[in-house]
Write a protein that binds this DNA or RNA. Structure first.
Lengths: 178, 178
DNA sequence: CAACGTTGTGTACGCTCGTACACATGGGAT
DNA sequence: ATCCCATGTGTACGAGCGTACACAACGTTG
């Protein structure tokens, strides 16, 4: 048999899962689709991840870590000089510009978490982590509110299919910050 | 053959679809499950709704109308004397209290619209309708922002599985209202 | 170097699904 | 009274699914 001993096999499957969910949504994820995308046999995906939920959790957690790195790399959140509302609005603009696969993936996670208890901790982690980052620049209540506002606005933009109005978002965020 | 000529057949199928989605989620909705729930043969569901998306659209639209009636019946939105933030926070409290099947259904359909273009107009309708109602009490920009905030907070409550803190919500909403 | 356990592979089973389609039925138009 | 067609019914097909499981390969350990 060909291609034996592939030490990164597990990681490659996770990467493939992220691509599949990004392209076809969570509903399009199956052991078979991810096996095809990762170019591994079916049995390999079931070996590394007993259930689809296991695979989803691994994939979404990795996606979250990726986003966290992007946020951290901007760094503006640390500098108390910058205008927090403007900083966040700009960041959302970047996030929503161009390829929205990442954003869609994130909110699809939200959807799935509503019905799949296994995914809830992952979704909660993301919101909690973001709020925690914001807490360095404002109080906890405001941080939580900012996360809610940003979620709501992202959803509106995605669903209305419209364009992103950065000035509007900056204005709303500024109102929430006391 | 039994039970022929059922003029409310179509409506009964929609009602059954709402119950199925409420109980098992969108993923659990199929021609067969809805047929069983409505106690009609399989062919009947495919006759009235060519595709599942058609059925989902009908169900979502009906759910929206139901919520719209609930909002309208509260009526507090019309009276300029009442505190808008308090009114909205109280309404969300009622909505999130007790049986959350309705809210879950709403947001599940909402998020499902991300991947199913057919559902998008319906989700958009809901947000637009709510914003329009709020516009009677405040400006259009604020109304849109309020919808976003309420959506975000609802999601947080549903996903965190936590309790609803009405005082916190009232405070955040008040900040958004200029 | 031999036994073992982890990792990888192929296949098959039973299920549910969407869809299609031929046929039954009976209200309403003519 | 007759015909038409919207409405309702039953069944079948092919596809995709999760899962299970027997077997193959190979590094590791004794």
């Amino acid at each position: 048999m060909a291609r034996r001993y592939d030490p990164d096999r597990r990681q490659r499957i996770i990467d493939a899962a992220i691509r599949v969910v990004g392209a076809k949504g969570i509903a399009g994820l199956s052991h078979r689709t991810v096996a095809a995308e990762a170019d591994v046999p079916l049995g390999s995906t079931t070996y590394h991840f007993k259930t689809l939920d296991d695979l989803l959790v691994a994939a979404l957690r990795q996606a979250n870590e990726g986003f966290a790195k992007v946020i951290a790399s901007r760094g503006g959140l640390e500098d108390p000089q910058t205008d927090l509302a403007a900083e966040l609005a700009g960041w959302m603009g970047e996030w929503l510009a161009g390829d929205r696969t990442g954003v869609e993936l994130e909110y699809e996670l939200y959807l799935a978490a509503l019905r799949r208890p296994a995914l809830r901790p992952v979704a909660d982690e993301w919101a909690r982590d973001l709020a925690e980052r914001l807490s360095r620049r404002t109080d906890a209540v405001t941080a939580r509110a900012l996360v809610a506002v940003m979620d709501g606005i992202c959803l509106q933009v995605l669903l209305a299919g419209g364009t992103y109005d950065e000035a509007y978002v900056r204005e709303v965020l500024a109102r929430v910050i006391p």
